[in-house]
């Protein structure tokens, strides 16, 4: 199991389009993937869950990944966060 801190970098925050990009990427992996904000955990493969986080710019989240492909998953998901979902 891996835990990794990530920061929402794009100005509009984790709104619909970045949320969709995140869910689509998470769905590619077999591992269980959770996003945690202030102790509140949601499944990163659920768009409703990700939207519920209402993560704004600058917000810090914890990625918690558990499974066989966790290494690749944490790498690609962190990159997605770092790139600001391509909309900085």
């Amino acid at each position: 199991m891996i835990e990794q801190n990530v920061i929402v970098r794009n100005r509009a925050g984790l709104h619909t389009r970045p949320a969709a990009a995140l869910v689509k990427l998470a769905a590619k992996f077999k591992s269980e993937i959770y996003l945690i904000r202030d102790g509140f955990a949601i499944n990163a493969k659920s768009i409703i869950g990700v939207m519920t986080l209402a993560a704004e710019q600058g917000c810090e989240l914890v990625l918690k990944i558990d499974g066989n492909d966790e290494e690749t998953a944490v790498k690609e998901l962190t990159e997605l966060f770092e790139s600001g979902f391509g909309e900085i």
Partner: peptide
């Protein structure tokens, strides 16, 4: 589509 297909939901 993602919302309708959200299996957790």
């Amino acid at each position: 589509l993602l919302i309708l297909n959200d299996e957790f939901f």
